[in-house]
């Protein structure tokens, strides 16, 4: 059980870090487009900084949404023959879809995590969710 919890927390940490890196990077891509003097060193240092400043908000949100969706996935895995890896990957994708689209819709259209504003950003968020679910499902398979 402890291994499962740690695996879930680890997978969600991975998703959160990717979400944060994507958000920070998307801001820097725009800054480069408007000729601001962005350097590789600045980008890397700011991503690491943002992992801590943004992580306080993003990690709990990612954790809660995925937990809710994964609980449904647990039931599906238990009572059907669905593959763990595919089911949790799908669940991760759905969770991040909710984060990227559902939460802003409920919040009057405001994107609190700015990386999700563009279509590419939303797709990447879903991809990160799928990856998180894949890592979790793959880890479970080793049990």
């Amino acid at each position: 059980m402890l291994r499962k919890i740690l695996l879930f927390l680890g997978a969600m940490l991975l998703v959160s870090i990717l979400v944060i890196a994507q958000t920070t990077l998307s801001n820097f891509i725009w800054l480069i487009q408007v000729d601001m003097p962005v350097t590789f060193g600045i980008v890397i240092s700011r991503i690491f900084q943002d992992i801590f400043t943004m992580g306080l908000l993003v990690y709990p949100i990612v954790l809660i949404i995925n937990l809710l969706i994964f609980l449904v996935a647990v039931l599906l895995v238990k009572f059907t023959n669905f593959s763990k890896v595919i089911t949790y990957s799908f669940a991760g994708g759905v969770a991040m879809l909710l984060l990227a689209i559902g939460i802003p819709l409920m919040g009057g259209g405001i994107y609190g995590i700015s990386g999700a504003r563009s279509i590419v950003g939303k797709l990447l968020f879903i991809l990160f969710g799928i990856l998180g679910g894949y890592v979790y499902g793959k880890g479970l398979k080793k049990d």
């Binding site: 920070t24 801001n27 820097f28 003097p37 962005v38 700011r46 995590i113 700015s114």
Partner: peptide
């Protein structure tokens, strides 16, 4: 938002620059 003294509400860096 090319220069700012603030961070995004999420804590993300909007810009590392404060002047230009």
């Amino acid at each position: 938002p090319a220069i700012t003294y603030g961070l995004d509400y999420s804590g993300a860096t909007i810009s590392p620059f404060t002047e230009m």
